[in-house]
Design a protein around this nucleic acid. Structure first.
Ligand code: FES
Ligand code: FES
Lengths: 154, 154
DNA sequence: CCAATCAGGACCCAACCGGTCCTGTTACGG
DNA sequence: CCGTAACAGGACCGGTTGGGTCCTGATTGG
């Protein structure tokens, strides 16, 4: 169903949380257990996501005691496409979009040779135009946060 | 990796093939085995895709002997989003986009409540702007489109 | 020197998808 | 009127992939 992995969802949650470090906090880094406690995501999963994000450079890490993670760039500088690419791998709807044509046995008679390229490019452009800051804006406006919460009714 | 299912790919192949019915052909419908032979996709898979497409109304079927399938609308009237939605289910990147909020245990502290909605909408808009005709144009030129008649290889 | 924390894997399990097949049901053709 | 060709709609099974957990180092501050 064109669904992206749950890890990507967690990555967005974690990064948004990472951006909400209190400005006057002494440690400007946050630890994995701390983020896990703040977001409700299980700690091992948070650690895994953080490690993946650190490996791709989206977040920076500080090792050792008093270590932790920090955003490498501000939220509005990170398009969601980068997060998806970091966690879920490159954006490739089908097997043969551009470079991965190695595993095609019969390219001559394959009718989908590069056919999805415009679709793939359109999606990538759409995803590059939305940043994590936009997603945060779209989320928790507190007064509008009444998804299924009917006042005194059910 | 944000990849859509292979069935969707096959669906596009089949529908494009369905549009390439010879103008002077006596039967304006094409059978599943015929399409399978023309595209190289295994017949059971073609039949399954066709049935799915027929169930959603993207193609019309003629039962009985001399039956077959026919496109319900011309190619340039079918956005690829409809094909994806027909085969792969509705476009929903994450679990909680709009209506499927039933399976969320803790919506109060869930930080991704509706956060992916703008992303989801952007993708759906991008996919709605591309039709199957565009995909056919983007594919290989007709001179390279060798018809898929396998030379009796095993 | 010790403790806390990240790094980078290996590992297992479940869910999902791809693919096949079987049994009706319909309609054309002889 | 009957046989056949084709669709309809499932059930079914196996392979693959992702989700999640855990373990063993490496690094740094105290
Ligand atoms: S699947 Fe790669 S060329 Fe057809
Ligand atoms: S996952 Fe649905 S509200 Fe959080």
């Amino acid at each position: 169903m064109l669904r992206l992995s749950k890890l990507t969802d967690y990555a967005v949650v974690v990064m948004v949380r990472l951006a909400e470090v209190s400005p006057g906090s002494n440690p400007d880094v946050q630890t994995s257990p701390g983020i896990a406690a703040a977001t409700g995501v299980p700690e091992p999963t948070v650690a895994k996501v953080l490690k993946t994000l650190a490996a791709t450079g989206l977040v920076t890490s500080q090792r050792g005691a008093r270590g932790g993670y920090r955003l490498a760039r501000p939220l509005h500088e990170i398009p969601v496409a980068e997060v998806i690419a970091a966690v879920d791998g490159p954006i490739a709807l089908v097997a043969c979009v551009d470079g991965s044509a190695t595993e095609c046995e019969s390219q001559g008679l394959c009718p989908v040779r590069g056919r999805w390229d415009p679709v793939n490019d359109a999606i990538e452009r759409a995803l590059s135009g939305i940043t994590l800051a936009d997603m945060r804006e779209a989320a928790v406006p507190p007064m509008f946060r009444v998804p299924a919460f009917l006042p005194a009714a059910e």
